[in-house]
């Protein structure tokens, strides 16, 4: 994945043009953002698997986090007259003209994982994304159910300040626990979505809350921060998963490792399989002319220690997380 990121976009476009036409039924071009995170790498691997399952010829162009590379990739897909274009947009604006070109060429565009500016709604077929507010709600509902009527002080590790995912995951969780007066977020600080900051912030939460005695649960906006927080709890002589409940979001392999060790309780999956539903929508559109809804919401599965975490770990570890 990363070695691919080394190529310049132009070289990649040339490479794509040089690929021989395949005998597959459908050819789909996928303009992927780049390898910004493990999840992104997993999305790319799963997309390849899903395409292979459906015998679709999937051409992936890595944009190295640059919109201009994505626009170039889309133009080259149009020139190749692919059957559909998948786009994981790096930013939400600036797509109008290139998407109009795709529309004129009658190539349906499906957005994966991220949405674009509302003004461009008629320019794409559908968007397959997760609802990050809902993810926060699933996490909050699990905690409320698990705690029951007991009073529970929650500390929250937020994502990067200003990131929409962080704001949404906070909003969803707050909505879910607002119905339960016994649940209260006592501390909330940003851990920048990283392990190191998650650990550092959790260390300070533990000190500020009587050595961790006043904390009943941790909610982290992603699993990486939780992995750091689990280390901080262990170093403070606490038992994560027992003394302090944990719930986080993403479902990366390492959180399942912690679950197997009994140190994590629950995670909400942000599925890396966005291409599967997108391919199905495109196939139905091409064959029967079925117009999919404008938004296909992916499932936010709740996975706990009772859901065979070892199996989840094994199935996810090879995906590039």
């Amino acid at each position: 994945m990363t070695s691919k990121a080394l190529f310049a976009a132009s070289a990649m476009a040339a490479l794509l043009l040089a690929l021989p036409a395949s005998a597959a039924e459908l050819t789909v071009g996928f303009s992927q953002i780049g390898s910004e995170s493990g999840w992104r790498a997993a999305e790319t691997s799963v997309s390849k698997q899903e395409a292979a399952k459906r015998k679709v010829n999937l051409k992936i162009a890595d944009a190295q986090q640059k919109q201009e590379n994505q626009i170039k990739a889309i133009r080259s897909f149009i020139a190749q007259n692919v059957d559909a274009i998948f786009l994981a947009p790096v930013v939400s604006t600036g797509w109008d003209s290139v998407l109009k070109e795709a529309k004129e060429a009658k190539i349906p565009v499906v957005l994966l994982d991220r949405d674009i500016d509302p003004s461009g709604k008629e320019l794409y077929l559908t968007a397959v994304t997760s609802d990050s507010v809902h993810e926060g709600e699933v996490a909050g509902d699990w905690l409320a159910k698990t705690v029951g009527a007991k009073a529970c002080n929650v500390v929250e590790l937020q994502g990067t300040v200003g990131a929409s995912v962080a704001a949404n995951r906070k909003k969803g969780f707050d909505t879910a626990i607002a119905k339960h007066a016994n649940l209260k977020v006592v501390r909330s600080q940003t851990g920048d979505f990283t392990r190191a900051k998650g650990k550092e912030v959790m260390e300070s939460f533990i000190k500020a809350e009587g050595g961790g005695k006043n904390i009943c649960a941790v909610y982290a906006h992603n699993d990486d921060m939780m992995v750091g927080a689990i280390q901080a709890m262990k170093e403070a002589g606490l038992k994560p998963g027992k003394d302090i409940l944990t719930v986080s979001i993403d479902a990366v392999p390492d959180i399942f490792k912690a679950m197997v060790a009994g140190e994590a309780n629950a995670t909400v999956e942000l599925t890396p399989n966005m291409a599967g539903p997108a391919l199905d929508a495109v196939a139905a559109f091409k064959e029967k002319g079925t117009v999919p809804p404008k938004w296909i919401q992916t499932e936010s599965r709740l996975l706990t220690a009772t859901d065979n975490p070892q199996k989840e770990y094994d199935s996810k570890k090879g995906l590039g997380y």
Binding site: M1, T2, S3, A5, L6, S35, S37, G38, A41, R195, D224, D254, G320, Y321
Partner: peptide, 8 residues
Amino acid sequence: QLITEGRI
């Protein structure tokens, strides 16, 4: 990133 292949 090349060394870690983008993973942790």
